[in-house]
Write a protein that binds this DNA or RNA. Structure first.
Length: 204
DNA sequence: CCATTAATTTCAT
DNA sequence: ATGAAATTAATGG
C-alpha cells in the first residue's frame, strides 16, 4: 500500500493563495483547544504535536507530525473549534493559509480534493485501528497499535528496520501508558522478537 | 564542565 | 503489576 503523508501541498501554490510562514520556537503553541479553526497548517520545517490534557492533567498525544505534513484541515470543513492543542516540539516553520483562501485553492485545483479524500481515508482507517488498540487493557496491544500506525506512514516493508523516532515518554503519552510500562513492555517485546532494541533506538 | 532532557532502576503500594 | 521518585546516561552549550 502506498503510504500517504497527509497532506503535502506544493508550497509555491500555498503562497500564491496568500499563505504566510510563521516561525515558532520549541514548546510554542500554534493553537489551543477551543480556538476557532481559521487556517490550514502545513509544516515546512520542524515537528508538532497535537494533544489534550485529561482531568488530572495527564497528557494524551493524538499525533506527532513532521516536515511536509499538515494539520487542522479537517476542521476547515466544519464550523467548529479545535478539540485539541497544537504545540511545537522543536523550532518549526509553519505555513498557514486562511480558510477561505484554502477553499478557493481547492476549487481551482480540484485534484487536491481527491488527494485529501485519500488522506482522510488513510487517517480514519488507522485511527480506527488505534482506537481498537487503545481499548485493550494489554499494554503490548496498545504499543503494537501505535507501531503499526507509525509504520503505515512509510513505505519500507523491511522487517524491523523502521526506526521509531519518539521518546519513551512520547510513546507513553500517545498510548495512555506510563513511561515505565512502556519501557518494560518494549523489553518484553524484544524478548519475544517483535521489535529490536539497538542502543536506545526502537526498530520495528 | 554544568544544565537539561531522556532512559532506566528502585522502591513503596 | 504499577507509578512516583531517585538514579544514571546522553546531549547541548
Amino acid at each position: 500500500m502506498k503510504a500517504i503523508s497527509c497532506m503535502n501541498i506544493d508550497e509555491s501554490i500555498l503562497y500564491s493563495f496568500g499563505a504566510e510562514n510563521t516561525e515558532y520556537k520549541k514548546r510554542e503553541t500554534i493553537f489551543n483547544e477551543g480556538d476557532s479553526a481559521l487556517y490550514y497548517f502545513q509544516i515546512s520545517e520542524g515537528k508538532v504535536k497535537l494533544n489534550n490534557y485529561n482531568e488530572d492533567g495527564k497528557e494524551f498525544i493524538h499525533n506527532i507530525l513532521g516536515k511536509k505534513q499538515s494539520f487542522g484541515e479537517a476542521m476547515i470543513f466544519l464550523n467548529q473549534h479545535y478539540p485539541i492543542n497544537s504545540i511545537c516540539l522543536e523550532e518549526s516553520s509553519i505555513i498557514k493559509l486562511p480558510k477561505n483562501n484554502f477553499l478557493e485553492m481547492v476549487s481551482q485545483y480540484p485534484e487536491l480534493s481527491l488527494e485529501m479524500n485519500a488522506c482522510f481515508s488513510q487517517e480514519i482507517y488507522y485511527k480506527l485501528k488505534m482506537t481498537q488498540a487503545l481499548a485493550s487493557q494489554n499494554p503490548m496491544q496498545r504499543l503494537l497499535g501505535l507501531l503499526d500506525y507509525l509504520k503505515s506512514y512509510h513505505h519500507n516493508e523491511c522487517q524491523q528496520c523502521f526506526h521509531i523516532e519518539f521518546t519513551r515518554q512520547q510513546i507513553a503519552d500517545l498510548t495512555g501508558l506510563r513511561v515505565e510500562t512502556v519501557i518494560r513492555t518494549l523489553k518484553k517485546m524484544e524478548k519475544e522478537g517483535s521489535i529490536t532494541l539497538k542502543d536506545r533506538k526502537i526498530l520495528y
